[in-house]
Every structure is written in C-alpha cells, then in structure tokens.
Design a protein around this nucleic acid. Structure first.
Lengths: 353, 353
DNA sequence: CTGTTAGCGCCTTCAG
DNA sequence: CTGAAGGCGCTAACAG
C-alpha cells in the first residue's frame, strides 16, 4: 500500500494563492459581507482547483461544534423489508440540508442500544432518529437525553420522546372505502394478529367506515390470522367455504393478500372479476408485482423518515407532541373491481384460459 | 430549545480527577506500556463516569488522521429491494471493527456521483464502497482515486477499480442441479432479459449443468422474458400449452417464479406435485413467503457487503484482482419435489382443495 | 479588504 | 509513572 500523500490543507492553498488562511476560509464559505475582491477570490479558487483542495469537514465540525451528520439508529432493521424506505426518506431530506446519515443497527437489547447510541454521540452527530419495523413500544437508554431524538414507528413509555406513527385507523378506513367505492357491500376483513397495535387500529377504521356507509355489520366478517401468507390462504379458504361469500376481501397485510390470491386461484376464481382484494403495507416488491397488481394502503415509512429529519434539522423537536400520526396512502390497483351481480357457486369449475 | 450544555471534555475529567489530560488520554485508550497506576486509573474512570464524559471522536480522528468511518455510496439504491442486504453486510463488518457507515445515495449521473463522492471524502471517510442493484457497468468520477474504493455488484471500464460480483454461472448450475437432484429431466428455463449480464451467465450455467448430467439438450426448453411477473406468467402458460410439458421450471428470477405460480395454479396444477419451480435472487419477502416457499438461489448481497468492508478495513484493496466472484447460495425449499411419473394432461381439471 | 491570534478536543513526543 | 507543549485543519474575533 502506498501511503496516500497528505491532502492539501487550507494553509497550502493560502500559501499557493499568496493570501492568509482566513481569506481562503472566507472565500470557501462564501462568507457574506466579508468583501473579498473578485481578484483575490479568483486567485484562491484557482489555487483550490490546482491543488485539488477539499476542506476537512471533521476539522470544520470541531470548530463549529456542528457535524451536519444525523445518526440513524435502527432496532433490528438489518434485513427488514421497509428499512430502506425509512432510510431513504431520512437520507433525502438530510442531503437536501447538506447533512449525511450515519447508520447503525442494533438488537433491541437495552445495553446494546445504549452502547450504539453512545458511539453515535461520540461521533458528534447533531441528532438521532430511532426507528423500528413493526410498530411497537421500545425501551430507550437514558443517554438519549443528551441529544435531540425522534422516534419513527415506535414509541416509548410516557411518550418521553416524540414519535412518528402511521395513522392506521384512517388507513383501515381508506382500504375499506376502496372496496365500498367499487360497489362492494359484503366485505370480509382477514385481519392480522389480533393483539397487534396495527390490527386494533385498522379494525377500528374498517368498522367505522362500514358504519359510515350504512353497511350492516352482519355482512362484515372479521377473522384473525397472523400476518403470514399461510394464514391469508387459510382464512380465504374458510371464507370461500362459508354460506355468504364476500365479494371483497380486506387483508391484514400484503403477505396475507398473497395467500388470498393463491387460495382464490386454486378455487378457479378470478381477481377482481369474482373477488376483489385489498392488502395493507404496500410492501415493495410484493404488492406492485402481483398479478393483478394489489390495491393496498402504503405505510408511510418514507414520509416518516423525511419528517423525522425535517424536524431534527429544524430543531423543533422539543415542540412536538408525544405522538404524531402520519397518513397512510391508499394505492388503488387492479385487484379491485366492481362486484359480480350474481352469487358465486360454492365450488367453481376450472378457469379456462 | 434549551442550549445543550457543553459536554465535558478531557480537560474537565483531568481536573476532576486531579491529573493531567495526557493521563486521561492514556487511561481512556488503555494505552499499553504506559504504566498508569491502578489507583490513578480508577480515579480517572470514576471521574469519567461521574461527569458522563464521552470522547469526541471527531477531534480524535482529526489528530489520528483516521475516522473509522466508511462511506457507502449507492447508485440509485433508494428503494431497491436488495439495498438493505448490502448495507447490512457492510454495516456488520464495520461495526465489528469499531467503524461506522456514512450513507449516501445518488443518481448515476456522473456529476452527481462526483459531488457525492467529494462530500464523503470531505467528511474524511477512510474508504468507500460503491454499490448498485442489478449488476452493471458504471462510470466512476476521477476523484475515486483519492481514496481506497471497492465496487459491489458493478464494474468499471478496464476494471480500474476492484469489484465484487455474484458468481451467476455457478448459481445457474446450482439452480439446475436442484431440479436434477430431485429427479427432473425435462426442465425449462424461463429466462429473464436475454441481453442482461446475469441472464447470459445463468444460462451458461444451466446448459453446462444439463450437459454434465447427460440430459439431452432437446429436452431443455429455453424461453426469454423480462424479469417481470407477467412474463413469468405468460411463458409458463406457453410452456404448459406445449407438447412436452416440463416437470421442472427454472425461472429467471423470483418475480418470474411468482408469475409461474399464478399460471400453474390457474391451470389447476399443484406445486411441487405436478411441477417443481426454482427461482433466482432469493428476494426477501418474496421467495420465502410464497406458498409453498420457493426454492431459489440467493444473490450474495449481504456477503458482498461484508467482503467489501473486510477488504477495505484490512487495507488490501490494492492487491485485489479486477473482479472477484462471490458465490451465490442455493436455497432449497418446498417448491421442488420429485417429478410425476406419468405425463400431465394438456388441460387439467379443477383442483379439489 | 486582509492578516494575526486563539481556540475546538484530542493525541503524542519528549522531559522530568 | 506523569505532565508540558505542539499539532491535526478549520473558524472567528479582533486588529490593522
């Protein structure tokens, strides 16, 4: 390995241009009202160009006591499906403000989180966003108090830290409305895990929207699964075997919707001609690539990432309420169509073609 | 906003412990052979604890000329499906060496890349990994020469920079062997885009493995699609409508395999009883969540991320060959089973649940 | 309009 | 075994 030759410093540039370091600093930072002559400025910039000088931001932050770096701390986000969205959102806003993201994943173990947070703080990040996949309450170490922090998709006891959460209830309403708007009245909700934060809220939205549309609750089946494909598959079969087959299915998430697709096809039925399906999450590389593409409600990971950094950079984290609900985005796709006018046979024949 | 009170510095700790800053530094860094008495050490550490002192790594890197930070530059990786894996791999190794990842995405526009690279360099990252999703050749700005750099999943003209690439040919062989091992002899390859880097190599592997197994090439159908679900669906239908229906399908990627699933189900056939299916990529949240779970070949994104950082930290990037091929990992799942002993009907009846 | 000087917080050679 | 002094590269008063 060749030792990389020492990078030129501001002093080098100054010498080269025949001015003082201060002048170089002023020119580099385009300091307003520091009246540097055009001539000097040109000379300095020429020297910069010639030497290939690039300011050392570490030294700069040391002097400014500001690193323009934001720490992104993910609880178990390693391979998680939505991690990328959150990071992207945070990244894009950060870049927009000349900041960068320092990333660290950790297990939820409080000691490990504490250590990681310390590492981030030692690196002088200006602020921190803590994120998880799958909304839940998390434990935060005490050292978070040393630095502006915002939580994404999670919250903490007593809302000690401001958090950004998806507005699942409205999302549940939106999903339901997609089906109602298409004309469906017999709708089943194949929900995810009954105990989960998300399920409770989506279900509430589902019921509220049906009520608002004047649909008889008796027409609305609600079954619980566990967010996995298999449970979507099984629940769909159950529903298809029932007395009153729904014309529209609202699934606990996109994976369960996939299970529904498989069960429906296996029965020789078609989507959306025979049954319409709506998912939840808008899982990238799933909802959009299904055939037909799956109508769903997008979890606002990207938006939460953006919003978090926006607040952090604005420095108004202190004024934020304990919880901020970020809207989910309904995404209408071809898996929703008008309901069939007549009832389905209990057992369909083979699909032809 | 309350102005965050000044963080304690090394001098504060020194004063508090009644020693000199140098001593504190020695204790903090556990400097070998600097013989600090146990007593002093304890006192210093107590002071550290009491004041909540945390060393300023920025200042440290300034003095050491080493930031223990690695820049991760993604070409258009914002929402990409595998980005997370690569980042995770890089992250995990970095953390293991007390380093962190500074992340930046950019469009492939050379000017933007250049700017982003400069930003990373100005922040004094020790090294850089440049990554893309979907193997391809990229343009790199000239300023990469200023810092150790390694490419992941991409390469550059004349292999000016060392790159890590998936070994697609062996992957193609592995996928094919999964089917051969299960007993299949009539196998179709529903490939992706014919021109793509990956397709060419996987196809080569497919042919090589068949040849090695002594399978008549005439028994091996090869059709080209475009990596999308729809093309997998269509090609599968084509194949199912053909004279000699294959018992095993090797798909261009997992998305196409999904299309194959849908077409197969629609025909009233079952996986793997009637037809076995193998994908490629092991796309997270797709291959594993299908029903039955999809056998596939995992692209080594995580491993490439790891390897990149490992080399960067070891500082042996200079000794690396132009291209290093990283093995893909075959993942056998339930979509592969033994072939049926008798031929399938040209049109199957309905499945009976 | 430009240069001098004193830090920012830490590391390290060299004395003692 | 411990401390003093200088430097890493940049910024910011304050002079001139």
């Amino acid at each position: 390995m060749v030792e990389p030759q020492r990078r030129p410093t501001m002093a080098d540039v100054a010498r080269h241009a025949g001015v003082s370091p201060t002048t170089v600093s002023f020119v580099i930072n385009d300091r307003p009202g520091s009246g540097i002559s055009e001539y000097t400025k040109t000379r300095v910039l020429a020297a910069v160009e010639e030497l290939g000088y690039r300011p050392n931001q570490q030294a700069r932050s040391l002097a400014l006591r500001r690193s323009r770096t934001i720490g992104f701390l993910g609880y178990e986000m390693a391979t998680a499906p939505f991690a990328g969205r959150t990071i992207s959102g945070a990244h894009d806003i950060a870049r927009h403000h000349d900041s960068m993201l320092l990333i660290a994943h950790t297990s939820p173990d409080i000691r490990q989180v504490r250590r990681t947070l310390d590492d981030l703080i030692e690196r002088q990040v200006d602020a921190i966003v803590m994120a998880v996949i799958g909304t839940r309450r998390i434990l935060t170490p005490t050292n978070v108090n040393d630095i502006p922090t915002i939580l994404v998709n999670c919250y903490t006891v007593g809302d000690a830290l401001p958090s950004l959460l998806p507005d699942e209830e409205t999302g549940g309403r939106d999903a339901t409305r997609m089906l109602l708007d298409a004309g469906h009245r017999r709708i089943a909700y194949l929900a995810g895990l009954p105990g989960s934060w998300a399920t409770r809220r989506r279900l509430k939205g589902f019921r509220a929207e049906l009520r608002a549309a004047g649909v008889d609750e008796a027409d609305a089946t609600v079954l619980f699964g566990d967010f996995h494909t298999e449970s979507g598959y099984n629940l769909t079969k159950t529903v298809l075997d029932g007395d009153s087959i729904p014309t529209g299915l609202f699934c606990g998430n996109d994976r369960m919707a996939l299970g529904a697709y498989l069960a429906i096809l296996e029965r020789g039925l078609r989507i959306p001609e025979d049954i319409s399906v709506v998912g939840y999450d808008d899982q990238e590389e799933l909802a959009s690539i299904l055939r037909p593409p799956l109508a769903t409600v997008r979890l606002p990971y990207y938006e939460m990432g953006q919003l978090a950094v926006r607040h952090l950079i604005a420095g108004d984290v202190g004024g934020l309420p304990g919880r901020t609900y970020v809207p989910c985005v309904p995404v209408l796709r071809e898996s929703v169509g008008p309901p069939r006018s007549h009832d389905l046979p209990r057992r369909a024949g083979p699909a032809t073609g």
